[in-house]
């Protein structure tokens, strides 16, 4: 985990459009470590697709550097870049399979580019189709497959050249929830089995939650926050992160005015019925105004907003109780 395989330094990308210059990335710094599953999340238009395309130089950054496996990509010739790209697989939202080629031939395609002899390529393609569970579809054409199957073929194709990194650009956004889950578990399995570093671009927090170790939240072309997934889920600091972690939190504002406090669950006290115990212990009634918690790996994450009793002492008692239980409690203020 210690060695960064991808380093982004002050990366920027400015597009020249007819309405003037448009900055998609404004100086992104990030390190992606070998063997991890790294998530990049942001609202649409935040620059995440541009960012992933800058990693393999499908888009040439206008400033800053991308260092992949110790090589500065901007210093490479077109030919060398081609070779580097063979060690970075990529999958897409729309799968982007060659529609006029069979499944087998699609998986062989990157091997043809890499000048692998045909016989070896076919053998490798069958191995990969076995891994993604589609060996029986080798002779089929992409139009005969479902969305999930197409993405599996795309994954097999992306892995053909034994890449060190797999870039996933909204790879599950066109799939239904159960297919999404199966694709994500396949990615997880690939990461574990082959130790391939995976970079996941998504706008869905659930995808990050499901497979990522670390996450970067990107907003207006900048990294708003970067860190372990658990940490960011528990205590989102930036506005962009809060918006993604608590997408419904705008409703809280309506409750503000009465005395309210927000209890933050960050995974430490999980199986304990906190609210029920608090009411029993303090013998004070509280009103739950808003709750959004989720269970990740047996730990509770999220927040509950409760309305405190008018009595100052009772309110203080409740606050003290919660703090003593190791929970983070904060008063809900206007415009939070």
């Amino acid at each position: 985990m210690a060695r960064p395989i991808i380093e982004l330094k002050n990366l920027s990308k400015i597009f020249a459009t007819s309405e003037g210059e448009l900055a998609a990335l404004n100086g992104v710094d990030a390190q992606i470590y070998s063997g991890e599953i790294f998530g990049i999340i942001g609202m649409s238009g935040a620059g995440k697709s541009t960012l992933v395309r800058c990693i393999n130089f499908l888009e040439k950054p206008t400033g800053g550097t991308v260092i992949f496996d110790g090589q500065d990509l901007s210093k490479l010739s077109q030919k060398e870049l081609g070779r580097v790209r063979q060690s970075m697989g990529m999958i897409f939202q729309q799968f982007n399979l060659l529609m006029q080629r069979s499944v087998l031939s699609n998986v062989c395609f990157p091997l043809e580019i890499a000048n692998v002899p045909k016989k070896d390529a076919v053998k490798r393609a069958y191995e990969l189709l076995e891994i993604v569970g589609l060996a029986d579809k080798a002779k089929a054409y992409p139009s005969q497959l479902s969305g999930g199957q197409k993405q599996r073929v795309a994954i097999a194709r992306a892995l053909a050249t034994n890449p060190k990194v797999l870039l996933c650009d909204e790879a599950t956004s066109a799939l239904d929830p159960s297919t999404t889950a199966s694709i994500l578990s396949l990615l997880k399995e690939i990461n574990k089995k082959f130790g391939i570093t995976i970079v996941v671009i998504t706008h869905e927090m659930s995808v990050i939650e499901e497979i990522c170790n670390r996450v970067a939240i990107i907003d207006e072309g900048l990294i708003a926050e970067i860190g372990d997934v658990e940490e960011i889920f528990a205590k989102p600091k930036s506005k962009a992160a809060k918006k993604l972690v608590f997408p419904e939190s705008k409703y809280i504002e309506q409750f503000v005015g009465e005395k309210c406090c927000r209890i933050i669950f960050d995974g430490r006290s999980s199986f304990e019925p906190v609210i029920a115990n608090m009411i029993l212990e303090c013998k004070e009634a509280v009103n739950i105004m808003f709750a959004d918690t989720k269970d990740i790996d047996g730990k509770a994450f999220g927040q509950i907003v409760i309305q405190l009793p008018d009595d100052e002492r009772a309110a203080a008692k409740i606050m003290n109780y919660l703090t003593s239980k190791g929970l983070t409690v904060e008063e809900v203020l206007q415009n939070d």
Partner: peptide
């Protein structure tokens, strides 16, 4: 489809290979 061409580029295909193979 532009996406298919992009996929080929992401695999390191040269412009000539993209013309002939994609």
């Amino acid at each position: 489809d532009k996406g298919v061409i992009e996929a080929a580029q992401s695999m390191g295909a040269s412009p000539m290979e993209i013309i002939y193979k994609v």
